[in-house]
């Protein structure tokens, strides 16, 4: 395709050429109608997406939705049953060795050689990539991932957080342009999660990152885009903000008065807006227009000589979207 466009360049208008060029250079991961079938079961069922270079994309989905299978296909571990996938325009099936040079992969559960020393292991991985400056890269990775103190230990002696760093270090040692991380923060404590997250955000500035996770806050904190996959199909794909708009329908206003409403007052409020009593003096109001609802509640309170002690908008969180689309 690329070769053709060069030879017939004269007959193509400039803008077409430019857009063609841009499309070819900035798409890091391109997936076309990817299917993976295990026996009768479709683990991944006809998914297509593009990831541009420099994006950090969060791959969400319940367990068994096909996240790991998709990642395994992208990293050439298993071939797709049908459909194609490209990393930097190279086919994962036909140019597997080339593709593997371009990607850094952290598999699920982060498998490591527990009887190797941290430095020894990184040197081994560097030697696989035949890096000319392997010693320097190993030192850089140890510094980047904060393994200085632990570098002389055996991997088996490390805590889970440090093992995860070793996993990330081996994935990045050859400076790949695409990073595929399968649940990089699973099983870590909150501090470690923050550290690993910061690490990924730092790295993600120059690289394309596709990461899978179960933690919604993580996606909101790190990712420029979210893809939600369910039963092998992509059910949502977009920026976190866009998804919220797309999937939000009703606005929920939580209101707390200084005292519980009398039946009469409740009836009056119910005439104005849809009300669900929560507990005590707390009520949930459901409506479409946020501002109008706020005004209405305020006027109601003034009229009935009530005091508003609390009023907050319950935003549709990514978690709700996740629950909705993967049900």
């Amino acid at each position: 395709m690329y070769r053709n466009s060069n030879t017939v360049a004269i007959s193509i208008p400039h803008y077409a050429l430019i857009s063609h060029f841009i499309l070819n250079t900035i798409v890091s991961i391109r997936v076309e109608n990817l299917v993976k079938t295990y026996g009768q079961q479709n683990a991944v069922n006809d998914i297509s997406f593009n990831i541009n270079s420099g994006e950090i994309v969060g791959f969400l989905g319940p367990n068994g939705a096909g996240k790991t299978t998709t990642m395994k296909m992208l990293t050439c571990f298993i071939p797709p049953s049908s459909g194609r996938a490209f990393i930097n325009n190279m086919d994962v099936e036909l140019q597997a060795i080339e593709v593997r040079k371009q990607i850094g992969y952290l598999p699920e559960h982060n498998p490591l050689y527990t009887d190797m020393y941290v430095k020894e292991y990184l040197q081994f991985i560097a030697s696989i990539y035949k890096l000319s400056n392997s010693n320097q890269r190993v030192a850089e990775m140890i510094e980047l991932t904060g393994l200085q103190v632990e570098q002389k230990k055996k991997i088996g002696q490390l805590s889970k957080g440090y093992r995860q760093r070793v996993g990330l270090a081996q994935a990045m040692i050859h400076n790949p342009s695409v990073l595929i991380l399968d649940e990089p923060t699973s099983g870590l404590d909150p501090n470690q999660i923050v550290e690993i997250r910061n690490l990924i955000t730092t790295i993600g500035k120059q690289k394309t990152v596709l990461l899978s996770t179960h933690i919604m806050q993580e996606v909101e904190a790190m990712c420029s885009r979210v893809m939600i996959i369910n039963k092998g199909q992509i059910v949502a794909n977009g920026k976190p903000g866009e998804l919220k708009q797309q999937f939000s329908s009703d606005i929920i206003l939580v209101v707390k008065f200084n005292q519980a409403l009398s039946n009469l007052q409740l009836k009056e409020l119910k005439n104005l807006v849809n009300v669900n009593p929560v507990a005590g003096a707390e009520y949930q109001l459901v409506g479409k227009d946020e501002e109008a609802m706020k005004a209405l509640v305020f006027n109601f309170a003034v009229k009935n000589q009530l005091m508003l002690s609390e009023m907050k908008v319950n935003e549709n969180s990514l978690e709700d979207i996740f629950k909705n689309v993967t049900r």
Partner: peptide
């Protein structure tokens, strides 16, 4: 067993 098989086979090695 340990899963490092996946590490090896996703490196640029035949």
């Amino acid at each position: 067993k340990s899963g490092t098989f996946e590490i090896l086979t996703t490196k640029p090695l035949t």
